[in-house]
Simulated assay, not measured.
Amino acid sequence: MLAEHQASWLAELGLLPGDAVFSRGFVDHVTLDARRARGVYARLVRHEPVRALRLLVDFTGSEVELPLLLEEIRQAGLAPSLEQLLVDRKNYWDVISDDELQLQRQGTRVLGLSLDVQDLSRPHAGLELLDIALGDSEAARLETLDVQLLARGESSFDALLQTLERAGPRPTLRDWRLSFSSPSGKESIRWVQLGSLARLLSLYPVLQTLVLPMAELPTEHVEHSELRELSLHWLGLTPCGPSDLSQWKRAPVPKGSGLQLLRDARLPRLERLHVDFQYAWYIAWTPEDLAPLLDADGLPALRQLELHNCEFGDVLCRELVRMKHASQLEVLDLTGAILSDEGALVLLRHRDRFPQLRRLVCGPWGLSEALWAELRERYPIDS
């Protein structure tokens, strides 16, 4: 039937053979140049359960047509079957990845949004896809939001935050994640300039999980009554280092606020805090940088502390034993920390500072056999 009729069926929708893939007798996936898609989208989604739409953009005029097409999509609304919407510019620039929006549905209701975005500052691209989706009535009870950044170097959070604020508060959102993605497999130094964490948190009153990538964090008062898990990565401010793998090396760079926001933060239900120090060669950490975490008063529910890939593990151990909330910790995860016998001795001498500890994650590397054996005897070690 498809061989005999698909050309005429597609023509009724304004499509040509090759534009669409059928499933169960219906148009399921559509790939279309942005110029030809104008006037087609509304007709298409009214009549077919389209799950994926890829819009091709190139130098021959479709870039100019794209904003008009996106406005048409906004006016017509997202199809209740749509699960994937892409803007593909690879026809004229193969180093650019797709701006891709994915929708996780329960029936027609949108429970989760996931966005891969090449450039947060580019108009009529990934952020506009997100803006359209957030404005759709089916996303009113959104529960998860995941944004993955594809660009190299620095990305400003301002445009994304403005898009989220324009969409308004989401009283049902529980999980918000910002991360980096490398579809090509090539890594480079990347970070986000996060203008205001407080403004972001204010949009989501029941948020429970917040995950951030390497980011410049401002010194500001942060308060949230429901947040349970917070994951932070590289936290120096004003990075000025190389962005090419071949040039990575230790160098003095300007230092910034680091973990300062934790000193006065009020997060009464925060149970898990994860900090990754894996770029210590890029921003050199000192004991003073840990002080805001160690002195924080507003984390009364903290039970699980994960401090990963810290190259000065002995200093970390000396500081942790004086942490205000040490006595309430149940999990202390020092994955990747570089320890010597000095750090192990500190933990052994101050075992009484961690009376609730059920799990200590660390490895034997750098430790003598005798001290490693004693550490395993005194602590519930998970290596």
Rank of each mutant, 00 (worst) to 15 (best):
L161S: 05
L68D: 03
A79Y: 00
R122K: 14
L160V: 11
L134M: 13
I73G: 00
L101A: 05
L149R: 01
L86W: 09
D146T: 14
T163G: 09
E138D: 14
S97H: 07
F157A: 03
Q118V: 11
L111Q: 02
W93D: 14
F180V: 14
S97V: 01
R105M: 02
S182I: 10
G112K: 02
D99R: 01
G185V: 09
E154R: 15
L86H: 08
E100S: 07
E71Y: 02
F157N: 02
R105A: 03
D94T: 09
L103T: 01
E143L: 10
Q84S: 15
F180E: 12
S181A: 15
E187V: 09
D175V: 12
S179C: 09
P80F: 01
R74C: 09
G135S: 12
D98M: 05
E71H: 09
R74V: 08
L149W: 05
L69D: 04
R89M: 02
A139P: 03
L69P: 01
R177L: 13
T108N: 04
L173C: 07
D146V: 10
V110G: 00
V147D: 06
S188Y: 12
P183H: 13
P183V: 14
S121T: 15
L86C: 15
A76D: 04
V87Q: 10
R152K: 14
G153C: 09
F180R: 09
E65G: 02
A79P: 01
P67W: 00
F180S: 11
G185M: 06
R109I: 06
G112E: 08
S188F: 13
L145D: 06
L160S: 06
S179A: 15
L130A: 10
S181Q: 14
E72P: 01
G168L: 11
G77Q: 05
R89C: 06
D116K: 11
P171Q: 12
P169D: 14
L70W: 01
L68V: 00
D88H: 12
R170Q: 15
E71S: 06
L130W: 10
R177D: 05
A133T: 07
D119A: 14
T108C: 01
S137I: 11
S114D: 10
S121D: 15
L161V: 05
I96W: 07
V147E: 06
Q104G: 03
P67M: 03
G126I: 11
K90V: 06
L111S: 08
R74D: 13
V117M: 02
A151Y: 11
L69W: 03
V95P: 02
A167R: 02
Q84P: 00
